[in-house]
Design a protein around this nucleic acid. Structure first.
Lengths: 160, 160
DNA sequence: CTATCCACTGAACAGATTGCCCAGCAGATA
DNA sequence: TATCTGCTGGGCAATCTGTTCAGTGGATAG
């Protein structure tokens, strides 16, 4: 569960050059191929590395508008609302949260006008009392994990 | 920019079995290897597929707590705030938004107590007027893209 | 109607990588 | 001291990659 410096370097290397092979990684990291293979296997079975799926850019797919919607749910309707939102392709993720709203979801749309359609579809469900939407203008820090990986590797205490 | 059915199937296949090779993909999709290679190259240079970086799970790294913070920024301090937040490893992403808040960021922490430390660090900066935090309890729809890819492929009009 | 262009097919080749196995070694642990 | 665990370095057959080539069919432009 805790990763050491070698694990950290391995993940960073993979993030920088995903197409790299195990052999080349072992050369770059200065360790034996078997070691890299074992570490990778361990990281994957630990769940630290979930997979290597393709990172698809919604903008390039024709969905350049992103928004976050805070939803308020009628008591007891939570389960139904989740099932409903899961059927909407433009809902990229959904969280239940503490605080003012009950749920927070990330939406994409083809345009600002299209966003209206998406929101209508999202809130067009009985259990949803209210929705408050914030449109994303800029994304100064795109979803990232490397800094956290490096932090986690450091915390191990100079492993490697 | 628009993807057809074959592109869609290719992306879905890659998402399901990321470790698959070009050759095996061509077998599964029933097309020639060269075709798969050409499609993949095109999708990548189009920016539809950004890359194949490892998907790291913060929970497995020891950061099981996720939260979203809405920030209000003092006028004119936006640029500095962005630079500040970019230095915090626990800030996984940052957006500027319309609506009540000025920015929305995703945070992770080692525990609820640790979240306080992270928030202190985030808001411990001059340009931030106020922060409102929602802790994530459950994640019914984890970040996903496949349904959108399939939708985009359909919209092309029965391509392939 | 014809010349072109484009995408796909099917095949070939050398070079590199993978998955797998093994023996030896060093540090930590019981 | 006996064991364990993780890393090293090597070897092997099987497979895949990168690349190139010629041929084919459909769509497009003149």
């Amino acid at each position: 569960m805790a990763i050491d410096g070698l694990d950290g370097r391995l993940i960073v290397l993979l993030a920088e050059e995903p197409r790299i092979g195990v052999l080349e990684m072992s050369r770059r990291l200065g360790v034996a191929r078997g070691t890299v293979q074992a570490r990778l296997d361990r990281l994957q079975s630990n769940g630290v590395i979930r997979g290597f799926g393709p990172q698809v850019d919604p903008t390039a797919l024709g969905y350049p508008v992103t928004a976050f919607a805070t939803l308020q749910i009628r008591q007891g309707q939570g389960v139904d609302v989740r099932a409903h939102l899961a059927t909407v392709p433009e809902v990229l993720e959904l969280h239940t949260t503490t605080g003012g709203g009950d749920m927070l979801c990330r939406l994409v749309a083809r345009s600002n006008a299209d966003l209206q359609r998406v929101i209508d579809r999202v809130v067009g469900f009985d259990g949803i009392v209210r929705a408050s939407t914030a449109i994303v203008m800029e994304n100064p820090v795109p979803l990232r994990i490397i800094p956290l990986v490096e932090q986690a590797a450091k915390d191990t205490g100079r492993g490697d």
